Simulated scan of single mutants.
Amino acid sequence: MRKGSFGSTRLIAAALVGTALAGCTTLPSAGPTASQINAALRKDNQTGFTIVDIDAASAPGLAFAPPPPGGLATLDQPGRIDTVGPGDILEISIFEVGVTLFTGASTDSPAQGGSFNPSARGTQLGTVKVDGAGDIQLPYIGRLAVAGKTPGEVERMIERGLRGLSQRPQALVSVKDNAYNVFYVSGDVRQPGRYTLGLPRERLLDSLARAGGTVNQPDDMVVRVTRGTVSQESRLSAVEASGPQNIALLPGDRIELFNRPRTYLVFGASDKVSQVNFGANELSLAEALARTGGPSERLADPAAVYLFRYAPDAGDETTTRPVIYRLNMMRPDSYFLSQRIGMHDKDVIYIATARANAPAKLAQILGQLFSPILAVRAVTR
């Protein structure tokens, strides 16, 4: 009985081995081999992809490209930040000599038997708010259109309005609460809020510094500036202190900072299949491969490393087409070329499985099949 049982087990094992040998091409794999990708190009190419070898001729077209013109730099324009606008709270004082309009006659005037007092006396009119139309209302003067005027120009407007009503009037105007010459910072900053523009004109990086900086890594952050009805944005790491993206601010600018990390995906015969953040303003293909350990020494075909990307169509820059760039890491010059290839957001790296791994996997499967049989045989002896 024991022999019959053992013979049945041997027959089952033999059947399983035969099945495994027959299905060698369907062994578990991390993805297609290089030959299978080439076959898909000819027979099952539903997306219309093409394969381009990365060599000395194609590498320059994949190199790091300068940032496109425009962006935040298109918002840069001259402007003033020292003028009065709607919502501002003005503090106004009037200084007079002799017979005054706001404080009455001097107690030492000749009409009262005293001597003339030439000293100036000041009167604070209190605070005045600039209305939505940009006007203020003052006693004896009436309505003044002050929007777009500097405090000095408003002073001269008041003095002209008091001529003939007061003896040598002089006005002093200051902005107590600035609601017009301000900018707004929101999003992933430490201290969001409304800030007053200072002199000289502040720039974009100055405004972020006043708001405490970002709460995340600058390489993952996007800064958006809205001026009026126009918005532009850029990677924060691409805004340099002396560059054109570091624009001078104007009243009413709205600055938003939000987290938008750039990532790439790694699949196939790699020791670390994952989604990886760039973590830098620029990232080369060589650096991207190194971050995940590169091709697996046990599984990969180093001659078949692929970069999947939607590239601009040569005939129409507004459309894209799927392209697979093939890197042969068995060639020494590929290591130089890979340092010049710039990664794009959402790129996919695929490392093909080596065909030579199939016999090794088969041996592993057979080992798993025979281990229980050997264990049973050792027990039944």
Rank of each mutant, 00 (worst) to 15 (best):
R2W: 02
K3W: 08
G4I: 12
G7T: 09
L11I: 14
A14S: 09
A15L: 15
G18N: 12
T19F: 14
G23I: 08
C24L: 14
S29G: 07
P32Q: 08
S35F: 11
N45W: 02
F49K: 02
V52F: 02
D53E: 12
I54F: 00
I54A: 00
A56E: 12
A59D: 03
G61T: 08
G61K: 13
A65I: 10
P66Y: 04
P68F: 11
P69W: 01
G71D: 03
G71L: 07
D76T: 09
Q77H: 14
T83P: 02
V84N: 05
G87P: 13
G87Q: 06
G87I: 08
L90Y: 00
I92S: 00
S93H: 09
E96S: 01
V99R: 14
T100E: 10
F102I: 00
F102T: 00
A105R: 13
A111R: 02
A111T: 05
G113K: 05
G114P: 01
S115F: 12
P118A: 08
G122N: 09
T123D: 00
T123S: 05
G126W: 10
K129D: 04
V130H: 02
A133V: 02
G134P: 06
P139W: 01
R143T: 15
G148A: 03
T150A: 07
P151D: 00
P151L: 00
E155I: 01
M157N: 01
E159G: 03
R160G: 04
R160W: 04
L162C: 03
G164E: 02
S166A: 15
S174A: 12
V175W: 02
Y180Q: 01
N181T: 08
V185M: 09
S186P: 11
R194G: 13
Y195R: 07
L197P: 04
L197K: 05
D206H: 06
A211Q: 05
A211R: 02
A211L: 05
G212I: 11
D220W: 07
M221K: 01
V223C: 04
R224G: 06
T226I: 07
S231E: 14
E233M: 10
E233W: 02
S234M: 15
V239G: 00
S242W: 09
S242C: 06
S242D: 15
G243C: 07
Q245E: 13
I247G: 09
I247T: 06
G252P: 06
G252W: 03
D253G: 07
N259H: 09
P261V: 06
R262M: 10
L265P: 00
A269E: 12
A269I: 09
N281P: 10
E282Y: 10
L285M: 10
A286D: 14
A288E: 08
L289E: 08
R291N: 03
T292Q: 14
R298K: 12
A300Q: 06
A303D: 10
Y306Q: 01
Y306C: 00
F308Q: 05
A311D: 15
T319Q: 14
T320Q: 15
R326Y: 09
M329T: 11
P332M: 10
Y335V: 04
S338H: 11
R340Y: 08
K346Q: 14
K346I: 04
V348M: 07
A352V: 07
A358D: 15
A360G: 12
K361C: 02
L362A: 12
Q364N: 13
I365P: 10
I365M: 11
Q368Y: 11
L369M: 11
L369V: 15
S371C: 04
V376P: 00
V376R: 15
V376M: 10
R377A: 15
A378F: 13
